[in-house]
Structures are given as structure tokens and as C-alpha cells.
Nucleic acid binder design. Structure first.
Lengths: 108, 108
DNA sequence: AATATTAACTTACTTTATGTAACTAAGTAT
DNA sequence: ATACTTAGTTACATAAAGTAAGTTAATATT
């Protein structure tokens, strides 16, 4: 199936990134501040394999930045860039919608 | 890997729905008005198999409604419910972010 | 009457994405 | 030399998505 046309290329690129599994939750977590790999892993329940993949993608897109601290053992922190923090209103609008429209049945 | 705790159950339910592939684009399309199956299929380039699955899910969540018109051949239209239209600000915030932050390299 | 047409799916099968659990690398500390 | 810790990676299993052909129901055509 070939698609008709592109409505808005930037919008579709954005959805390609944001609409991937786990991306929303990773960004939501990092809005609270930079975190380590294992901390993100355990806070949202993603597998290490996919987290590693997603963080690389998000870094490539300039949404996340990786910082290495030469301590022992090494500490690596993932934080949002300005571009990443600019997603806060998106996450907020989702949260706002969820509060208004997700009822108890949907929750279960 | 088990996750630590749930930050906000409603928010996570919302992400479960919205973070699935194609959901964003389907809702974006339907914001322009109710559309037929084949029209959605060709406008966003999704496969019929998955579109069928997504529309059922979205109907189940109360985001989309399916209307049957007994014409020949039968006409079936999918449109947004009030809950679905309430997602417009979410899509708008994504579009706004995309316009400000998706550059030409990311597009390619 | 038999065949064709159209939209809206569904089915069987292939390819891609994600999950799981064990393993590796680098830098100490014992 | 061996063990410990974090941050991954690898090999393999399962789940989700893509592809293309087939089904159904109501006409229209020959």
C-alpha cells in the first residue's frame, strides 16, 4: 500500500519518533532530570536491549544527550536537550487529556 | 524486567493507546472529518490488516465511532467521538513542536 | 441465470520489532 | 588473580506489522 501524499513532513517525522514504543515514557522520565541507564530501565520496565536502541535514536535526533562521568564504576547519565525539553507541552497535553477522558474501565 | 512503580496510571493508559504505531496519524486524519476505511488506508499508507485492528481498538476505547450506511455498495464511515476530538490539542502540540524543532536533516 | 463489480474486511504467510537472559568490557577493590 | 559494579551487547524466542490473495454481501451487467 502506497500512501497518497504527505500532509506535513515535519509532523510525520515527529510522529515517527514519538509514536515508537517507549519513547513517550522515556522522555517523561527524563523531564524529571538526567538519569542513568539502569534507573530508566527499572523505572519504566523497558528491556535493556530496546532502551539502548531508543537512547541511541533519541541521541541521534538531538532529543537526548549522553554524559560520561569518569567515576568508579563509570557513571553515564542521559538527559534531555533543549529540543527534548521542548516536548514537555506535548506530554502535558497527553496527561491533561488522560485526566479528563481515561475512565476506570479503560484503566483495567 | 519489572518496573518500579506507576507514575500516573491514566497517563500510562493514554500512552499505551497513543504510542502505538499509526494511532496518531489515524486520529490526525479523522480530525478532518469522518472517513471510509479505504480512504484512511490510502491516505496514510497503513496496511488493511493493521488498520482494521487499530480501528477496532480505537472504537473499544471510545475514541472512534463506526457508522454504517446501507447504500450500494455499503458505506462505512469512521469518525471521532468527543473523546477523540479532545485529542486535537495533543496533535496540535506535536505539530507545533515539529515546526520548531524538526530540521531538514531529520526530515530526510 | 451466471458473471462481474465494489467496499470492507479477513486469512495465511513473511518480515520486522521487542522481550529474555546470558555474556562482555573497563575500572577498581580484595 | 579474582571479584564487583555499571553499561551495555549478543543470541535466541515471541509478538507485532506488512503483503497479497481470498471472502462476503448487495447490486449491475451480459
Amino acid at each position: 500500500m502506497m500512501k497518497d501524499k504527505t500532509i506535513c513532513p515535519r509532523f510525520e517525522s515527529a510522529l515517527d519518533i514519538l509514536n515508537k514504543r517507549w519513547t513517550g515514557l522515556i522522555i517523561f522520565q527524563l523531564l524529571e532530570g538526567a538519569q542513568r541507564f539502569s534507573s530508566i530501565e527499572s523505572s519504566i520496565g523497558i528491556s535493556g536491549r530496546v532502551l539502548s536502541e531508543r537512547l541511541k535514536d533519541l541521541e541521534k535526533y538531538g532529543i537526548v544527550e549522553r554524559k560520561v562521568y569518569n567515576e568508579t564504576p563509570v557513571r553515564i547519565e542521559y538527559g534531555l536537550t533543549e529540543k527534548g525539553r521542548a516536548l514537555e507541552p506535548v506530554l502535558n497535553s497527553i496527561q491533561h487529556w488522560a485526566e479528563g477522558w481515561i475512565d476506570n474501565e479503560t484503566l483495567i
